[in-house]
């Protein structure tokens, strides 16, 4: 299962394989969390991630092209996060981030808030890189974006973030 391609895992999950589903979770949960965290309180994000994967499990049989899975799950995560954000308090209410255990330092919360003020495209990519620890090539592989796009997003995003943070984190 560890060496299987994403398309092979998707096909297996469509057939009902739970080990293959665990394999997809292992490879994509950080990307989904990053997309959610870009829009939702850190304390709420893990539950939204689980909701996304519950959707994946129930709707994956409808996905006709297994190779399209990265773009498909990214869209699903965005929709779930937007839907959740509409019904909850604004993310600018940063005290809710203290629901994360252990609470992050105030400096970390300030950095996350600064990222959330960036354009959406840079926001997601920077969280994947700086929070989830994915490398640029891994982000491209997991999201379906081209490596060139990811590289540009990272470099422009970090430039804007440095400006927001006053030149130093």
């Amino acid at each position: 299962m560890r060496d299987a391609t994403v398309a092979e895992l998707v096909t297996a999950v469509q057939g009902g394989s739970r080990p293959a589903f665990a394999g997809l979770y292992e490879r994509f949960h950080r990307v989904v969390h990053a997309i959610v965290l870009a829009r939702v309180h850190a304390g709420d994000a893990p539950d939204v991630v689980q909701d996304v994967f519950a959707d994946v499990w129930s709707r994956l049989p409808d996905l006709r092209e297994p190779a399209a899975f990265p773009g498909w799950i990214v869209t699903m995560a965005r929709n779930r996060a937007i839907d959740h954000a509409r019904r909850r308090r604004p993310v600018s209410d940063d005290t809710a981030d203290l629901a994360v255990s252990p609470p992050p330092a105030a400096e970390a919360a300030a950095a996350l808030r600064a990222i959330r003020t960036l354009p959406e495209t840079y926001r997601e990519t920077l969280i994947m890189r700086l929070v989830e620890g994915l490398s640029g090539p891994e982000i491209a592989l997991r999201t379906g974006m081209t490596p060139e796009s990811v590289r540009v997003h990272l470099h422009r995003g970090i430039k804007l973030l440095r400006e927001k943070l006053g030149g130093s984190p």
Binding site: H29, V32, Q50, F53, A54, W57, A108, G133, P169
Partner: peptide, 25 residues
């Protein structure tokens, strides 16, 4: 600078285990 941001923000990283999915219809 980037390494410091990684250290700062790493506490938000997702490490929750997968919940078992419900039986599929």
């Amino acid at each position: 600078e980037v390494e410091r941001l990684e250290q700062l923000l790493g506490g938000y990283a997702h490490d929750a285990p997968m919940r078992e999915p419900p039986p599929r219809r």
